[in-house]
């Protein structure tokens, strides 16, 4: 898991008090309104700011079509870890989310889809029982109704505060992906910055088509872990979307401005017309 505090969230800042946003990549100052018009992509360097699920839905789904399900699921404290409940409550207050993923149904250019959007803002997008269950429900809803599933990932990995239960969510989501595949229903993954650990090693790498946002960090072990324990010099582009594409693990790197159109194309290309 990574420390999320150092990262900048343009969209998480108070809109009224902070009209100017600093790009974490190139440090240029950008007017909030301008950034919003640019879909939260830095107009100077192309850095893709992290999005909240609500912002992602607004950018991708047809207006007012998103219907959330499994919205009431909340985490418990399976290994009775001191301070975990308080940490979850704090994150719920700060993010206005119940946990690190929102799932639901919507249309994109009129085409039905099941969509899941992870939020790095909520405990580093870590996958515990709630995230695992909601991703599983999204995948199985797709399988059950033969509706394509689109999942946006953003995660520091398994939520270790939930002990072995968090590890098991990897198996749970992956087995749900197996059932989705068995019903010949497509799964589209959009890897966003950052996607690592147990999410990378489960459903995030199981898409029929895997898209990544430009320069998103994508990997299994964190770069610091690798550098620290192995003492290896890492290439400059290590674990970027571009690195992953070069090595064959990402189908396409798609700029946020093209993302909706791309997903719409994929949905129509996989539509079951007179088969």
């Amino acid at each position: 898991m990574r420390d999320s505090k150092k990262e900048h969230y343009a969209s998480f800042d108070d809109v009224d008090t902070k009209k100017i946003v600093t790009c974490p990549s190139c440090s240029s100052s950008i007017h909030r309104k301008r950034l919003e018009d640019e879909l939260y992509v830095c107009p100077e360097c192309g850095y893709h700011f992290k999005l909240t699920p609500a912002e992602r839905i607004a950018q991708i789904a047809d207006q007012n079509t998103f219907e959330e399900f499994a919205a009431d699921l909340t985490s418990r404290n399976p290994i009775a870890l001191k301070g975990y409940e308080a940490k979850v409550s704090q994150n719920q207050r700060d993010s206005d989310l119940k946990d690190a993923v929102v799932v639901g149904t919507c249309t994109i250019d009129g085409q039905e889809t099941v969509m899941g959007i992870m939020s790095f803002q909520f405990m580093g997008g870590s996958m515990g029982s709630v995230v695992g269950e909601k991703i599983t429900q999204a995948l199985l809803q797709g399988a059950d109704t033969n509706t394509p599933v689109i999942l946006f990932t953003a995660s520091g990995g398994a939520r270790m505060q939930e002990g072995i239960f968090s590890l098991m969510q990897m198996a749970k989501t992956a087995s749900a992906a197996a059932l989705l595949e068995a019903t010949a229903t497509p799964l589209f993954i959009v890897l966003t910055h950052p996607t690592t650990g147990g999410v990378t090693a489960s459903f995030a790498m199981l898409g029929d088509v895997i898209i990544a946002e430009p320069r998103a960090l994508i990997g299994f072990a964190g770069p610091r872990v690798i550098e620290g324990t192995i003492g290896q010099q890492l290439p400059k582009d290590f674990q970027t979307a571009e690195f992953q594409q070069k090595r064959g693990f990402v189908d396409a790197i798609v700029h946020r401005k093209e993302l909706r159109r791309t997903l719409s194309f994929l949905l129509s290309a996989h539509a079951k017309r007179g088969r």
Partner: peptide, 12 residues
């Protein structure tokens, strides 16, 4: 699958 599907500890 049934066994795996049921693993998790949450409210709701």
């Amino acid at each position: 699958i049934k066994k795996i599907r049921g693993i998790g500890h949450f409210n709701g």
